[in-house]
Amino acid sequence: MENNEIKYELKEFKLFEPLFKWARKKSLWIVAFCTGCGGIEMPPLATARYDFERFGIMPNPAPRMADLFLITGYVTPKTLKRIIITYEMMQDPKYVLIHGSCPINGGVYWDSYNVVKQLDKYIPVDVAIAGCMPRPESVMEGILTIIRKIEEGTADGWKRYKENYEYYRKNQDELFGEGWREKDAKRWLAWL
């Protein structure tokens, strides 16, 4: 396994890697894509009470620049398509934080026909916060866990996505049917 490990470091930047690592954990930009009810926990985090900008965290509307993908609440197949497209738009290294019970095991929607019960079958997840709803303190704790994991180098969801792409792709195709990317993504991303 050691030999097969895929390396993603660019050769020319190897020297600056510690510097980038330091910058990465201190400047996490959140893609502003709030699914479900958890989005309401974001305003207290961003405003004077908890102020996550202290840690360099900033909500950023463009997925291309973002690092941290917060999935805040239940995921339906319809949102899952958007989540996967947004996740694939983000540039490596990228981190996913899921928020609340719903993306972990379905939560209160455990027997719903139209909710994706387990998100980490479709995209890799770095940190999961349980609770319904988790309070801003626990979201803050989750974000600090991500920062700690980046420091240790164990926040490797983006690597896992590349290594196990067939697995994730198979699960996605099982849910949406073959060729959903070409069919649907073209419709939303007209400029492709």
């Binding site: 600056f16 980038f20 910058a23 201190k26 490596d92």
Partner: peptide, 12 residues
Amino acid sequence: LDTLKLLGKRES
């Protein structure tokens, strides 16, 4: 820091 982080992105 933000600029450094953006420079350190693996893909472009």
